[in-house]
Design a protein around this nucleic acid. Sequence first.
DNA 1: GATGAATGAGGTTTCATTCAT
DNA 2: CATGAATGAAACCTCATTCAT
Lengths: 188, 188, 188, 188
Amino acid sequence: MALSTRSTDKRQQILEATIRVLRERGLSGLKVEDVAKAAEVGKGTVYLYFRDKRDLLRALVEYRTLGFYADAERITRLARPFPERLKELLARRFAFIDEWRGLWAAVAAEAVERDAKEAWLRGLHERYQRILEAFIADGQSRGEVRADLDVTLTASALAAVGCTPQLDLPREAYLEQLAAIWMKGVGA
Amino acid sequence: MALSTRSTDKRQQILEATIRVLRERGLSGLKVEDVAKAAEVGKGTVYLYFRDKRDLLRALVEYRTLGFYADAERITRLARPFPERLKELLARRFAFIDEWRGLWAAVAAEAVERDAKEAWLRGLHERYQRILEAFIADGQSRGEVRADLDVTLTASALAAVGCTPQLDLPREAYLEQLAAIWMKGVGA
Amino acid sequence: MALSTRSTDKRQQILEATIRVLRERGLSGLKVEDVAKAAEVGKGTVYLYFRDKRDLLRALVEYRTLGFYADAERITRLARPFPERLKELLARRFAFIDEWRGLWAAVAAEAVERDAKEAWLRGLHERYQRILEAFIADGQSRGEVRADLDVTLTASALAAVGCTPQLDLPREAYLEQLAAIWMKGVGA
Amino acid sequence: MALSTRSTDKRQQILEATIRVLRERGLSGLKVEDVAKAAEVGKGTVYLYFRDKRDLLRALVEYRTLGFYADAERITRLARPFPERLKELLARRFAFIDEWRGLWAAVAAEAVERDAKEAWLRGLHERYQRILEAFIADGQSRGEVRADLDVTLTASALAAVGCTPQLDLPREAYLEQLAAIWMKGVGA
DNA sequence: GATGAATGAGGTTTCATTCAT
DNA sequence: CATGAATGAAACCTCATTCAT
């Protein structure tokens, strides 16, 4: 167990370091050597945990995506009214999408073969869909969401919300309004 | 003039070739040699028209952006009702933003130094702002847009529209509705 | 033609340099960088003429083998008695085999995939067999070699001189005969 | 003694494993990690028995060579007629030489410094010379070998079978004789 | 202007070796 | 003794850039 823990730690340590380097230097400035330095491990150690640089990038995208899903799941399970949870979920979703567009989209393009990319993304997305379905179903069971709505379709529609306010629109107001619209649409 | 025309042609020829290679191989697979081959010129010729690879990328982003602006200007000047022109403008804008997010965002990140990027983008954006201002002002002068609206602010708001429908939402309906909202907001 | 000549020159220049480095430092000490230095070209130039290091090694073995064959052919065509030509041919052959065993065997092992190796060697060998056949036939036509000998078999036997039995010659018989010769020579 | 035995076992176990890996993957594909895995010991254990990789290779060549000498000695001491023992000895010798040329020559080249190599090989060879001398002398004492032959020279000549002339034998004479034998065999 | 052979800095990856456990 | 995770020197190879023609 100690070993497994240590391994997990080091792997994550490298992933986190990669994110830092990525933010500092950008994708085209990402060198394995810098990642190793930032993670305070040897260059060879990176290759103990990842087959090659692309594998590291692939793992990184998955790591961040799963991180978002973990947050999403936590939020949807909070002991708070549906509208509040919805609003917080959307806020987290927008932050993730911003990050995705600014960083992970390009990383993914370099990490995954053109052909395999779609299937890989779809696979990653699947879990989010299920989280939203559980969220909608929960709302229905509590009487906070209209019971006549199809869970799958509604979750899909919610998953599709991905437009983020650009430039300098007041973010808070935007979220407020978006959640309101959704509640008007799906509220019981 | 013949020479200048030929030069201009060759420059554009290289830019277009770069786009093709970019779509085929992605940013990380973009090699100057391939660009030259695709443009049917020698590798050295690329360096006659662009200082280096980054300069090529920078020029490319500007080229595509100016292409969009040219279209936008043309659309806003069509001899058709404001709502129609607005709808078509939005459609073109969305296509551009999709392309930007899928391709040019990453290219820009590699082409421009982190620090200079914001100023460069702002500079690029400026012209779009002016196109929209002229468009709004034109609408006002024709009595198709409420005269009490501040031109600058309204143009800014229009420029900020950048959410594209995701997944499989019916695009046509989306555009229809968006233009309707805008006309309800700004129509005279 | 100038270009082709220049290319050929540089390719050969690199091959010759590789041989020098190989002799000086051995196979395990052969670095592409040193080859480039010895050939007085840039490291990248090596990769213009050879796909990778293995390709360089493969080409090198072929280059040396063909060099031997050229010599062998020249010797067998000299205007001198058969025994003299035979002796000189054997001398050259032994020198080549020494070189092969001391150097090229190991190079070949690193240059060619285990599975493909046999076919590759057989292909290389073919030409030598044909040179010997022509040599034997020439000897017969001049009345210097017994006319009842089968050309192919005799050439094969000659090709095998200096080697432990090759290909599919019956090993047992070969041993039998060799021991007999030896017994005739040293037996009481 | 138990410990020493165990140690010896493990050492030999590693040597045998090295041979297996060498045959499977070739010299350039020989990694200490694979050797350890094949020997079913930890990677560090290899370094308990051998200073470094070269030491392992050196020991391996000696191990195989001594194995051949043990066989050779056994064969020469069989209670059978000289010609039979000679034939069997040659068979074993050829097998060893084949193996040497296909494998150990390259291993030796990597294991021993260029300068030290000759002396090292000569040292290894010495014992074989003595085995052959004893064999010839035994043949003479039994009246199976001509008594007028010089034991040392004859043993040297026998040692040279299967090799292109080694050491310091007069090359010209060797070629002369070999060509003569061949001409006796194939001459008209 | 146009070319593409030549270059070598700079990146990725491997693997012999060490050492804490 | 035995281990194998960790290391980084050293090798391979790519590709942006130059420059003689």
